[in-house]
Write a protein that binds this DNA or RNA. Structure first.
Length: 364
DNA sequence: ATGTCC
């Protein structure tokens, strides 16, 4: 493996050779100076669970269509002991479409893909009601402003069709697979669009939480506790030079606390990253897929009934109308989040602040 | 990942 590449994972973490080959491919692109595979690394169109540092050039295709995808953790004002879970599940199951939930007082001018605002999307995107399970670092936890008695909502979503449109355009216009060079109009144009998609996605995560709460007939005032983007390109100034960090399924390691979820059958971890060069200033964004989407249903359909596939560890439930997706996103299809967290701890990249357990997972 | 592809 070439000198630019570093994979942060213990021998116990199973990493597919395909993903390593993909890292090699990207390491040979012009201007790429460092490639990091995080413990949740797995193959995709481009490798997922990875960070890439470049100089004088950026590659939009590395981060792909879902520009700005990330995680937001919100605190509701709902006390967890007051929640009637089965009533919530019924309510979430009964509306046909999230979009039938109105967004009141929403300023609708000048927003691209307005019809997609407040929608989750497919794939691994979700919104999950959670509660604090355990606090490991009281001092850092204090600074987050979380009341442990309150129900939390974790939202994982991105820029929907907007990021896709931006990627399609930049590839058509500038043949962007060859990269966009610093000093050209191309790069400025793309980064401006990219920034808008990052903001759109961040904003959208709040509207998803709003819609869910409104669907449940609860107070829609939420407090954003955490937000991190795991698909983006950001400038980094180091030694008086400008570098670009491409994160594809990698959370920032230099912007404060981050939430790392596992599958719907596992805990989520609030961690405090330690800013460091060895990981390209990045940390894992989740558990990472273990199985390809195709074949999940065949592997699991004999193990579960229509009812039990929706039940998960910790007594939680998933609400998901898409049957294939229910299997594709099953806990078995994901790597072990505890292993990922262990690997980040072993590499001295994080401090664990707290864990959250799932209560209800809602899929778009 | 995508009102995607089969």
């Amino acid at each position: 493996m070439n000198q630019k590449i570093r994979i942060i994972a213990s021998k116990n973490s199973w990493i597919e050779q395909d993903a390593i080959d993909q890292l090699e491919g990207i390491s040979s692109l012009e201007g790429i100076v460092k490639v990091v595979g995080l413990p949740d690394l797995h193959p995709g169109k481009t490798p997922v669970g990875a960070a890439f540092i470049s100089e004088n050039i950026i590659y939009p295709h590395i981060i792909g269509n879902d520009i700005g995808c990330g995680m937001s953790l919100f605190m509701t004002d709902i006390k967890k002991h007051k929640v009637n879970i089965s009533r919530w599940i019924k309510k979430l199951e009964t509306f046909e479409n999230m979009q039938e939930i109105d967004i009141e007082g929403f300023i609708k001018e000048d927003i691209p893909f307005l019809e997609k605002i407040g929608t989750i999307g497919g794939g691994n995107h979700f919104a999950e009601f959670q509660q604090i399970e355990k606090v490991f670092d009281e001092a850092i936890f204090e600074t987050l402003g979380i009341n442990k008695k309150n129900m939390m909502i974790l939202v994982h979503s991105g820029s929907r069709g907007y990021g896709q449109e931006i990627l399609d355009e930049v590839i058509k216009k500038y043949h962007a697979q060859k990269g966009l060079r610093v000093g050209s109009n191309d790069i400025d144009d793309y980064l401006k669009q990219h920034e808008k998609a990052v903001k759109w996605a961040e904003n959208n995560r709040k509207w998803i939480a709003y819609r869910l709460l409104k669907a449940l007939g609860s107070n829609t005032d939420v407090q954003r506790i955490l937000d991190s983007t795991h698909n983006s390109i950001t400038k980094k100034h180091l030694d008086e030079k400008v570098y670009y960090i491409h994160r594809k399924g990698a959370a920032p390691g230099d912007l404060g606390p981050v939430i790392i979820p596992g599958s719907r059958g596992s805990l989520s971890y609030i961690v405090m990253p330690k800013e460091c060069e060895i990981s390209a200033y990045s940390i894992a964004h989740g558990a990472g897929r273990k199985w390809k989407r195709g074949g999940c249903k065949e592997k699991l359909e004999n193990k579960y009934t229509k009812k039990t596939i929706k039940q998960t560890k910790f007594g939680a439930n998933v609400v998901c109308k898409n049957k294939n997706l229910l299997f594709e996103e099953a806990p078995e299809a994901y790597k072990n989040i505890e292993r990922v967290i262990e690997d980040l701890l072993d590499a001295n990249l994080i401090t664990v602040v707290a864990t959250l357990k799932p209560v209800v997972t809602y899929k778009g």
